[in-house]
């Protein structure tokens, strides 16, 4: 019963969040200057031409009316048609979403592995120069935003030592036909490891740029909680049992220290997904974020709305996932 109630509450809040996001974006992109019709017509189009096109896209009605029509269509599964490409918004967004998901999850994994192992190492060598060095590295990582890391990585690992691809998602020269849009997963499932390697080569630098600031946050927070745990009595008791410092940190301290970190990582992960917009542009990576920038430049109103809705949905899903993981990891919540 409890679970059903929790789920229903979450569903209701999700719907409210999505509706809020939809309203804000809908109003904002219509209030700011810039007219999609002006972008579509050649210079010298007559007033009548403009009016005809506006009527075609429903832009002659009031914002409130436009919103009601749009939301009505959305509820029926129709997200409208892109003004620039004349393709259904839904198909465009669904086609690009997997690319962004793969990139974000890859970045998250890198951040967790790098930040987590740095935090564990710093805890093991706490109070020594090793911890000091890790702290400095973390401070540097945190002092630059992801897109500057992206530029730096392009210059160093893409141009100076061209170890990785700096543009696109896959090399066209490979001539590999994908049946789905989850390229990486598909290549893995089909055991085409040459393709996997090529995909990773493209994905590594943008994912790393996104991961560096998050890794630093994980490092700082996890290290702090780990060091606090190391003063706890059960740690002392484990020492008397004959366990080494390493296994005490990994087995006794980590499960308790991970909980406060988890909440923040959830919040930060949504920022990371937001960061894909610029990073994908920087690396010409064909994801949702790259498409979003094009849509804004072209004032492609239906497409912008669709993309924003998907991002909002992603954010709420991430939060839900974090809450569920938190409950699963914390025995004090599991039976509540």
């Amino acid at each position: 019963m409890q679970i059903v109630r929790t789920l229903l509450t979450r569903l209701a809040t999700t719907i409210i969040t999505l509706l809020g996001a939809a309203i804000i974006v809908f109003v904002v992109i219509r209030v700011v200057p810039g007219n999609p019709i002006a972008m579509m017509l050649p210079p010298g189009a007559t007033e009548a031409d403009i009016a005809r096109l506006e009527a075609l896209y429903g832009l002659d009605k009031s914002i409130f009316e436009q919103f009601l029509i749009w939301i009505g269509n959305v509820l029926q599964g129709d997200f409208g048609t892109s003004i620039t490409t004349r393709q259904p918004v839904f198909d465009l967004v669904i086609g690009r979403l997997p690319a962004t998901l793969e990139l974000s999850v890859m970045a998250l994994l890198i951040a967790i592995v790098v930040g987590g192992s740095a935090a564990l190492t710093a805890t093991l060598y706490r109070g020594t120069k090793v911890e000091g060095g890790i702290d400095v590295a973390g401070g540097v990582a945190l002092s630059l935003p992801d897109f500057l890391w992206g530029l730096a990585l392009i210059l160093v690992l893409g141009v100076l030592w061209p170890l990785f691809h700096i543009s696109g998602r896959v090399s066209p020269s490979l001539g590999f036909e994908f049946n789905t849009d989850f390229y990486l997963i598909e290549a893995l499932v089909r055991f085409r490891f040459d393709v996997v390697l090529d995909l990773l080569g493209h994905m590594f630098l943008p994912a790393l740029a996104l991961a560096i600031p998050l890794a630093a946050i994980i490092l700082q927070l996890l290290k702090q909680s780990l060091k606090e745990c190391m003063h706890d009595d059960y740690i002392t008791l484990a020492r008397t049992k004959g366990y080494s410092e390493t296994s005490i940190i990994a087995r006794d301290a980590l499960p308790n220290a991970i909980l406060p970190t988890l909440t923040l990582v959830g919040v930060q992960f949504t920022f990371l997904i937001g960061g894909t917009v610029i990073i994908e542009r920087l690396f010409s990576y064909e994801g949702l974020g790259n498409m979003a920038i094009d849509a804004v430049i072209n004032r492609d109103l239906p497409l912008i709305q669709g993309i924003v809705l998907v991002f909002a949905l992603l954010f709420t899903l991430v939060n839900l996932l974090v809450d569920m993981t938190y409950a699963a990891l914390n025995p004090r919540l599991r039976h509540a």
Binding site: D233, T236, L237, P255, P331
Partner: peptide, 23 residues
Amino acid sequence: RAKIGAKVALIPQDPLTALNPSR
């Protein structure tokens, strides 16, 4: 460590904090 672990044991002061809450 191994010798202490095998031959000596501790009964701690505060039973509320001496057990690991997540195990």
